[in-house]
Design a binder for these strands. Structure first.
Length: 486
RNA sequence: GCUCGUAUAGUGUAGUGGCCCAUCAUGAAGGACUCUCAUUCCUUCGACCCGGGUUCAAAUCCCGGUACGAGCACCA
């Protein structure tokens, strides 16, 4: 019986997963560990992870590290990626699979493919094959007997062939509409003597390596993956893999795609490029405040929760989008404000000497919305305070939580303790509560050090603060803050 | 060039033939609260790419156009 929806309601969260059964959903996130995770990777983790949670299923973290030449893996990434994924998800991925550990399984399937004659060893050059592909003509190697293919396969494995000599292809119809799919390559030879795999246990152990389309297809089947959600740049990959699945008699998982995301303020950052720049000394490391890596963002004080909400809100549409950073910041503000103690940080501090009657100390709330968090005490017996140069120039100002003053040179004459006009309210510090401090800002590709006076505090490293009238910041140490955003 | 895909307010997003003179968020502007240019709350602004067609009825289906993107690597 068809049930008519009662009322159109705005859908919350992610779109429904097709053909999903509670408890039986298996998803995966499969990065190349050629560097730590970046902002873009977060989408893959968050979306797949959310679905896994929602359907009581599993999330596999898979290292697709089958290339040792073009985008070779980075050893530290094997440690760092699982940690970053856990930070972002709030749970550990249920399974971790490393493709380079699974080469024997891929060989086994390659041999099945050759034995069952839906694959062949092709000895044509890349150029030559391109001709065949565009002209829809069959490559001469395509008619190899199984015996010959097995013999050639052995030569690939034992080193008789060198890179470029031979590749294993999957047989498809050569008149497929989409040229990209015609007899696509599944495994190739890499010079692992010159370019060993960075994992010592793998090193130069294998010469023949699967390409992504083959490795990923076989592994998804072996792991029982039910749903694949990935970028739409991999759409043709799905089509290639579906052809392979048909040969094997397997059923391809449900797939969903997302489009490209650009962050307006960041240009194009690629992992490979960042790696080069870091190695060239342009950045201090993967956690550099200027970098759109997960560690970089985390360092700046962007929370996992903000990142999750951000990606869920963007959803799984195939549109190519450009998002301003302010969207992420808005999520971050929601994530941290309620727990962020208020603190004063005075930029370009000017010393003022108080003249006139006033209390010896005053107290202000740690958080205006949460009086229970207590107060901050400003000692005024020293009669000296710090305020920002820009504010002091206005002459008639109000020191927040204290009193109106009138500034003349270094003298601040204390006026009304109560508020009785609309003069600007500024943040300030009493000299005895202030320490020399530095605020680090990532700005236009530079890291700017802003020296000033900061309110003394005992907050541990990593605490998110709100520096009054400036924005949010993260505690690095007793005298250093990193500016997060305003 | 061939193939595939996408097109809803400034930016994202909901919407799968009638509930849509279109949702929510963000943004901008204004206001309330507040001894922060914060938080919270309120108000306002603002969109269905274009042209045909199908239908009693189209943002939703079909065709064409346009724009943008992706794949066509012995990268992932």
């Amino acid at each position: 019986m068809l049930e008519k929806r009662e009322k159109k309601e705005r859908r919350e969260g992610l779109p429904e997963l097709k053909n999903a059964t509670k408890g039986k959903v298996v998803l995966r996130f499969a990065p190349n560990p050629n560097g730590p995770l970046s902002f873009g990777h977060a989408r893959g983790i968050v979306i797949n992870g959310k679905y896994a949670e929602e359907w009581d299923g599993e999330l596999i973290l898979r290292f697709d590290d089958t290339d040792t030449v073009v985008k070779p893996p980075l050893p530290v990434a094997y440690q760092q990626i699982p940690e970053e994924a856990e930070w972002l998800l709030g749970f550990k991925p249920h399974r971790i699979v490393i493709a380079s550990d699974r080469i024997p399984q891929y060989y086994e399937h390659a041999e099945m493919m050759l034995q069952r004659d839906f694959g062949y060893v092709c000895q044509c050059s890349g150029e030559a094959f391109k001709e065949f592909r565009v002209s829809k003509t069959e490559c001469p190697c395509r008619v190899n007997t199984v015996e010959l293919n097995m013999e050639l396969w052995t030569k690939m494995l034992d080193g008789t062939f060198v890179p470029g000599d031979a590749v294993v292809r999957v047989k498809t119809a050569m008149d497929l509409k989409n040229p990209a799919l015609r007899d696509w390559p599944a495994l190739r030879i890499q010079n692992t003597a010159e370019h060993p795999h960075p994992r010592p246990e793998i090193g130069s152990k294998y010469r023949v390596w699967p390409l992504l389309d083959f490795q990923s297809a076989v592994e998804d089947h072996l792991q029982g993956v039910t749903h694949i959600i990935r970028g739409k740049d991999l759409m043709d990959s799905t089509r290639k893999q579906t052809l392979l699945y048909a040969h094997f008699g397997w059923t391809y998982p449900e797939t969903m795609y997302w489009g490209r995301v650009k962050v307006h303020e960041w240009g194009g950052f690629s992992t490979s490029q960042m790696r080069r720049d870091i190695e060239a000394g342009l950045f201090s490391g993967w956690d550099d405040l200027r970098l759109p890596t997960l560690t970089g963002l985390r360092n700046r004080g962007i929370t996992a929760e903000a990142l999750r909400n951000f990606w869920v809100e963007l959803g799984v549409t195939q549109k190519d989008i450009s998002v301003p950073l302010s969207t992420l910041y808005s999520h971050n503000t929601k994530s941290i404000d309620d727990d962020a103690p208020r603190l004063a940080f005075v930029r370009n501090p000017k010393k003022l000497v108080l003249v006139g009657e006033h209390e010896d100390s005053i107290e202000v709330d740690v958080h205006p919305n949460h009086p229970k968090l207590g107060t901050r005490k400003f000692d005024l017996t020293g009669k000296t305070v710090w305020a920002e140069e820009e504010d002091v120039e206005k002459a008639e100002i109000r020191l927040k939580g204290f009193a109106d003053i009138e500034v003349s040179g270094k003298i601040a004459t204390v006026g009304s303790i109560g508020r009785n006009d609309r003069r600007p309210i500024v943040h300030w510090l009493s000299e005895s509560n202030a320490i020399d401090a530095t605020l680090l800002l990532a700005e236009d590709g530079d890291i700017v050090r802003l020296d000033g006076k900061m309110e003394k505090h005992n907050y541990p490293e990593g605490t998110m603060l709100q520096i009054e009238r400036i924005g949010y910041a993260k505690v690095v140490d007793a005298s250093t803050l990193v500016f997060t955003h305003s």
